[in-house]
Design a protein around this nucleic acid. Structure first.
Lengths: 225, 225
DNA sequence: CTTCCACAATGAGAAGCTTCATTGATGTTG
DNA sequence: CAACATCAATGAAGCTTCTCATTGTGGAAG
């Protein structure tokens, strides 16, 4: 999942990017009209987070540009609470949602995932990766047609890896995704090592081979052929 | 937390109400302008869910009425995707958020709780109920100044009870709140009995007395003096 | 009042999750 | 290339959560 964050307040931009990276998205950022336009011409994004009140005043133009070019990217407008007209105009131009400042990062994440979900509502609930198939309705996993029994955490972990196939995910990203805010503040997620170990063992026993690679200092990468 | 659902499609209205009740809200519903107006004059709501496209065409009038009367209720507009103008006008009239149809009930729930959170952002994180006090930051619980050690599930359960003090909550509502969609579909939540038992024991040992009452066929009610 | 049934409570034990101490691996510094 | 620091893997142990079988309880029906 690839996102573009268009926001000229650098501090805010960085904190959004770092949060969304944790949440497993791939993020590009742009600090104004010109660089944003360039990015959108170069890549397709699953969702663009657009601060409508850019310094250069061109946030709205960017949105107009995007929509008139038949871009399929989703758009989430971020707007200061007092700029009602811009917000409204943005929706009329075809943005998918808006989020008033100030907001919690977790809320931002929820909106982004809602936009993406709504756009992919062709909703397939079986994920197939080579001989591995995950039925997200039945919460069951099969390897080459044979049922693989996983505990809840193992299942969640595998699902997260599946969504992020081929991408390196950090230990923290995994932890935030599997435990959310259930844990106290003493966030020591070393027990992930144990879950990784167990999942690896089961996958290897099932004949998947070495699918979870460690990336020293970075996290883990799941890949399967 | 008290909500008003204004929606004239009976089936949709019922499913929203039943979902939100599960989510621990107290819900009133109204199927048109007149009954909604009456309700809002009678009660204060934490959030009003308003379908702007009512049969009688008065959804917008209702919103205007509310806002001009200095009502402090939050408003979430529910609108069909194609009625852009109404949606936009609604926001201009001071609604807090909108949600396009069709939507997932879980998303509706998220928006409602976001509105309520934003409005209560005076955010107090210590809940005091008689000699019991719950620090939601530190995730710690004290009874008459003495620390009470609870496991994660016990803590979550107590917190849920605390939010719903004096109200009967069903076993299913508890389950949905503590486990969300983590569980498979085979939703047999009998193990809640065990958690109830353990929490009861700890509360009694700590000197809180008999705070969790069973309500036969309904669920449980938490009360503390 | 007795019988019956569904709901609730309980204890014991299994399964799962987290902690801990130890060992091993990887990259960095001098 | 040693020595070191950091990160990762592992097995075992302890705690938490869940399951299961059994018992108890409240309400409805006869």
């Amino acid at each position: 999942m690839k996102l573009l964050i268009v926001e000229d307040e650098k501090i805010l931009c960085d904190s959004i990017v770092s949060y969304l990276k944790q949440e497993n998205y791939t993020c590009d950022s742009a600090n104004g009209y010109a660089s944003a336009l360039e990015k959108t011409e170069q890549y397709d994004y699953d969702c663009i987070l657009l601060d409508i009140n850019l310094q250069d005043g061109n946030g709205m133009n960017l949105l107009r540009e995007l929509k008139s070019n038949n871009k399929t990217d989703g758009v989430l407008i971020i707007s200061a609470r007092n700029s009602l007209e811009d917000k409204v105009a943005g929706l009329q131009l075809g943005a998918d949602d808006y989020l008033p400042k100030p907001f919690h990062l977790s809320e931002l994440g929820a909106r982004v995932s809602a936009i993406i979900r709504r756009r992919n509502s062709a909703g397939n609930n079986i994920i197939r990766l080579a001989e591995l198939s995950i039925d997200t309705q039945a919460r069951s996993v099969e390897v080459a047609g044979r049922l693989l029994e996983l505990t809840r955490k193992e299942y969640q972990l595998l699902l997260y890896f599946a969504y992020n196939k081929g991408r390196v995910v950090s230990k923290n990203a995994i932890a935030e995704h599997l435990w959310g805010d259930e844990m106290g503040d003493a966030a020591n997620y070393d027990f992930i090592y144990t879950h990784i170990k167990n999942l690896r063992r089961k996958l290897i026993e099932a004949g998947c081979g070495d699918t979870i690679q460690s990336v020293y200092g970075m996290g883990y990468k799941f890949s399967i052929s």
